[in-house]
Protein backbone atom coordinates (compact mmCIF):
# COMPACT_ATOMS: atom_id res chain seq x y z
CA UNK A 1 0.00 0.00 0.00
CA UNK A 2 2.53 2.57 -1.13
CA UNK A 3 -0.21 5.01 -1.93
CA UNK A 4 -1.58 5.11 1.60
CA UNK A 5 1.93 5.31 2.96
CA UNK A 6 2.64 8.38 0.86
CA UNK A 7 -0.70 9.91 1.78
CA UNK A 8 -0.09 9.33 5.48
CA UNK A 9 3.37 10.84 5.18
CA UNK A 10 2.03 13.89 3.40
CA UNK A 11 -0.77 14.53 5.89
CA UNK A 12 1.66 14.00 8.77
CA UNK A 13 3.87 16.69 7.25
CA UNK A 14 0.84 18.97 6.91
CA UNK A 15 -0.07 18.34 10.55
CA UNK A 16 3.44 19.28 11.71
CA UNK A 17 3.67 22.37 9.50
CA UNK A 18 0.22 23.51 10.56
CA UNK A 19 1.12 22.99 14.21
CA UNK A 20 4.27 25.07 13.83
CA UNK A 21 2.36 27.83 12.06
CA UNK A 22 -0.35 27.84 14.73
CA UNK A 23 2.33 28.32 17.39
CA UNK A 24 3.21 31.60 15.68
CA UNK A 25 -0.23 33.13 16.12
CA UNK A 26 0.37 36.11 18.39
CA UNK A 27 -0.91 35.99 21.96
CA UNK A 28 -3.71 38.42 22.63
CA UNK A 29 -5.02 39.90 25.83
CA UNK A 30 -8.48 39.69 24.36
CA UNK A 31 -8.06 35.95 24.08
CA UNK A 32 -10.43 33.48 25.67
CA UNK A 33 -9.34 30.39 27.59
CA UNK A 34 -9.15 28.36 24.38
CA UNK A 35 -7.36 31.06 22.41
CA UNK A 36 -6.79 31.42 18.69
CA UNK A 37 -4.25 28.60 18.80
CA UNK A 38 -6.48 26.25 20.79
CA UNK A 39 -8.49 24.43 18.17
CA UNK A 40 -5.77 24.57 15.48
CA UNK A 41 -3.53 22.67 17.87
CA UNK A 42 -6.23 20.10 18.49
CA UNK A 43 -6.77 19.73 14.74
CA UNK A 44 -3.02 19.25 14.26
CA UNK A 45 -2.92 16.53 16.93
CA UNK A 46 -5.90 14.73 15.41
CA UNK A 47 -4.48 14.92 11.90
CA UNK A 48 -1.14 13.68 13.19
CA UNK A 49 -2.77 10.75 14.94
CA UNK A 50 -4.89 9.87 11.90
CA UNK A 51 -1.83 10.06 9.67
CA UNK A 52 0.08 7.69 11.93
CA UNK A 53 -2.90 5.35 11.95
CA UNK A 54 -3.01 5.42 8.15
CA UNK A 55 0.71 4.79 7.89
CA UNK A 56 0.38 1.96 10.39
CA UNK A 57 -2.44 0.29 8.53
CA UNK A 58 -0.62 0.76 5.21
CA UNK A 59 2.43 -1.00 6.60
CA UNK A 60 0.29 -3.79 7.94
CA UNK A 61 -1.25 -3.92 4.50
CA UNK A 62 -4.77 -4.26 5.73
CA UNK A 63 -7.23 -2.68 8.08
CA UNK A 64 -9.40 0.38 7.87
CA UNK A 65 -7.32 2.42 5.50
CA UNK A 66 -6.85 -0.16 2.80
CA UNK A 67 -10.42 -1.12 2.20
CA UNK A 68 -11.21 1.19 -0.66
CA UNK A 69 -8.47 -0.16 -2.88
CA UNK A 70 -10.51 -3.28 -3.36
CA UNK A 71 -13.45 -1.32 -4.66
CA UNK A 72 -12.42 0.40 -7.85
CA UNK A 73 -16.09 0.93 -8.58
CA UNK A 74 -16.10 3.92 -6.29
CA UNK A 75 -16.28 6.93 -8.62
CA UNK A 76 -14.38 9.14 -6.19
CA UNK A 77 -11.28 7.03 -6.40
CA UNK A 78 -10.83 6.40 -10.11
CA UNK A 79 -7.12 5.94 -10.23
CA UNK A 80 -5.45 7.18 -13.37
CA UNK A 81 -3.19 4.60 -14.91
CA UNK A 82 0.48 5.27 -14.33
CA UNK A 83 2.79 6.95 -16.77
CA UNK A 84 2.48 10.16 -18.70
CA UNK A 85 -1.25 10.35 -18.10
CA UNK A 86 -0.61 11.62 -14.60
CA UNK A 87 1.33 14.53 -16.05
CA UNK A 88 -1.37 15.46 -18.53
CA UNK A 89 -3.60 17.15 -15.93
CA UNK A 90 -0.73 19.49 -15.11
CA UNK A 91 -1.19 21.00 -18.56
CA UNK A 92 -4.74 21.97 -17.67
CA UNK A 93 -3.49 23.62 -14.51
CA UNK A 94 -0.82 25.43 -16.53
CA UNK A 95 -3.49 26.87 -18.84
CA UNK A 96 -5.31 28.22 -15.79
CA UNK A 97 -2.13 29.69 -14.32
CA UNK A 98 -1.28 31.40 -17.61
CA UNK A 99 -4.80 32.79 -17.71
CA UNK A 100 -4.43 34.30 -14.24
CA UNK A 101 -1.09 35.84 -15.19
CA UNK A 102 -2.17 37.41 -18.48
CA UNK A 103 -5.72 38.50 -17.71
CA UNK A 104 -4.77 41.81 -16.03
CA UNK A 105 -2.95 42.81 -19.24
CA UNK A 106 -4.81 41.15 -22.07
CA UNK A 107 -8.18 41.67 -20.48
CA UNK A 108 -11.03 39.27 -19.90
CA UNK A 109 -12.26 38.62 -23.43
CA UNK A 110 -8.90 37.92 -25.07
CA UNK A 111 -7.59 35.87 -22.15
CA UNK A 112 -10.75 33.83 -21.88
CA UNK A 113 -10.77 33.15 -25.63
CA UNK A 114 -7.18 31.98 -25.23
CA UNK A 115 -8.17 29.73 -22.35
CA UNK A 116 -11.03 28.19 -24.31
CA UNK A 117 -8.91 27.63 -27.42
CA UNK A 118 -6.00 26.22 -25.44
CA UNK A 119 -8.20 23.87 -23.43
CA UNK A 120 -10.04 22.67 -26.53
CA UNK A 121 -6.74 21.97 -28.26
CA UNK A 122 -5.30 20.29 -25.19
CA UNK A 123 -8.32 18.03 -24.83
CA UNK A 124 -7.92 16.79 -28.39
CA UNK A 125 -10.24 19.18 -30.22
CA UNK A 126 -7.52 20.15 -32.68
CA UNK A 127 -6.81 23.65 -33.82
CA UNK A 128 -8.85 25.04 -36.65
CA UNK A 129 -10.73 28.11 -37.69
CA UNK A 130 -13.75 26.56 -36.04
CA UNK A 131 -11.95 26.39 -32.69
CA UNK A 132 -10.93 30.03 -32.98
CA UNK A 133 -14.46 31.10 -33.80
CA UNK A 134 -15.93 29.04 -30.98
CA UNK A 135 -13.35 30.41 -28.54
CA UNK A 136 -13.96 34.02 -29.51
CA UNK A 137 -17.72 33.75 -29.54
CA UNK A 138 -17.58 31.80 -26.27
CA UNK A 139 -15.52 34.54 -24.67
CA UNK A 140 -17.99 37.15 -25.91
CA UNK A 141 -20.86 35.07 -24.55
CA UNK A 142 -19.25 34.89 -21.12
CA UNK A 143 -18.46 38.60 -21.30
CA UNK A 144 -22.09 39.28 -22.04
CA UNK A 145 -23.20 37.09 -19.16
CA UNK A 146 -20.76 38.15 -16.47
CA UNK A 147 -19.82 41.71 -17.42
CA UNK A 148 -22.74 43.11 -19.37
CA UNK A 149 -25.61 41.37 -17.57
CA UNK A 150 -24.28 40.61 -14.11
CA UNK A 151 -22.02 43.65 -13.91
CA UNK A 152 -18.97 41.77 -12.59
CA UNK A 153 -15.88 43.88 -13.20
CA UNK A 154 -13.63 41.46 -15.01
CA UNK A 155 -10.31 43.09 -15.96
CA UNK A 156 -10.46 45.13 -19.16
CA UNK A 157 -6.72 44.88 -19.73
CA UNK A 158 -4.51 47.40 -21.44
CA UNK A 159 -6.92 47.92 -24.34
CA UNK A 160 -8.87 50.92 -23.03
CA UNK A 161 -5.61 52.84 -22.50
CA UNK A 162 -4.58 52.28 -26.11
CA UNK A 163 -7.48 54.12 -27.63
Amino acid sequence: MNRDLALGGATLAIAIAYYLLSAQIPESQLADAVGPQGLPRVYAYILGALSLALIGSAIRGSGLGARDSKEPSNPESRVPSPGLKILRPLGVVAIGVIYIVVVPWLGYIVSLAGLIAATTYYQGGGFSRRVVIVALSGALLFWGLFVAILGIQHPAGIWPSLF
Binding site: P26, E27, S28, Q29, L30, A31
Partner: peptide, 12 residues
Protein backbone atom coordinates in the same frame (compact mmCIF):
# COMPACT_ATOMS: atom_id res chain seq x y z
CA UNK B 1 -7.27 52.58 17.97
CA UNK B 2 -3.71 51.48 17.43
CA UNK B 3 -2.93 52.15 21.08
CA UNK B 4 -5.93 50.07 22.16
CA UNK B 5 -5.09 47.18 19.85
CA UNK B 6 -1.46 47.19 20.97
CA UNK B 7 -2.31 47.49 24.62
CA UNK B 8 -4.67 44.53 24.39
CA UNK B 9 -2.10 42.56 22.42
CA UNK B 10 -4.15 42.06 19.26
CA UNK B 11 -1.32 43.52 17.21
CA UNK B 12 2.32 43.94 18.00
Amino acid sequence: TEAFLKQSGVIR
